[in-house]
């Protein structure tokens, strides 16, 4: 029995060299395979949440995401909503927009962004809309995140 275990252990140790080689040589294939697993998604806390609706204007496209109330279990009482402004060409210098993030047909907050000077003015209209978290250029777009209160909590 001892001898069998010993032989099996040596065989396993021998294969370790090949395991390391396979992991790195076949890395891209493994990445594609495991990348399809249900948990391999960036958390909406970072990715910004799913798209809720899009408003398309002449020179500006506004993507309003669904509010993110991510918590380890259930939903948290406070979260954020992400708005992405994309220009059809370059981003306009001045963006002034009222946003209805919860689709109740009433504006929840107002944004005034100067994309050249990197200045954002924010005005909360709805009591559920909290302060501005971040307003920043991201590649060719402009992304804004506003703190919002979870109505269910």
């Amino acid at each position: 029995m001892k001898r069998t275990i010993s032989i099996l252990a040596i065989i396993w140790a021998f294969f370790c060299t090949f395991i390391i080689l396979i992991i790195f040589i076949k890395g891209p294939q493994f990445t594609r395979l495991f990348g399809k697993l249900p948990s391999m998604i960036i958390s909406p806390v970072y990715a910004g949440g799913d798209l809720n609706y899009v408003v398309e204007g002449d020179s500006l496209k506004i993507a309003v995401n669904k509010p993110v109330f991510e918590a380890l279990i259930g939903e948290s009482a406070k979260g954020f909503v992400q708005i992405t402004f994309s220009g059809t060409g370059n981003l306009p210098q001045l963006i002034e927009q009222e946003i209805d993030y919860d689709k109740d047909l009433k504006p929840d907050f107002k944004l005034k962004i100067n994309t050249i000077e990197n200045k954002t003015e924010y005005l909360s209209i709805s009591p559920n809309a909290g302060p501005l978290i971040v307003s920043s250029k991201v590649h060719d777009d402009w992304v804004v995140r506003i703190k919002v209160r979870n109505k269910k909590k």
């Binding site: 390391i20 992991i23 890395g27 990445t31 948990s39 960036i42 958390s43 991510e70 380890l72």
Partner: peptide, 29 residues
């Protein structure tokens, strides 16, 4: 990952997946 089924890192999902596979593989060996 167990509770929210997501990865809590603001990175590229491809490179994160590869890093996770590499770490698990290396630790086995």
């Amino acid at each position: 990952a167990v509770f929210t089924k997501t990865i809590i890192f603001p990175g590229n999902i491809g490179s994160i997946t590869f890093m996770l596979i590499a770490t698990v593989g290396m630790s086995i060996v």
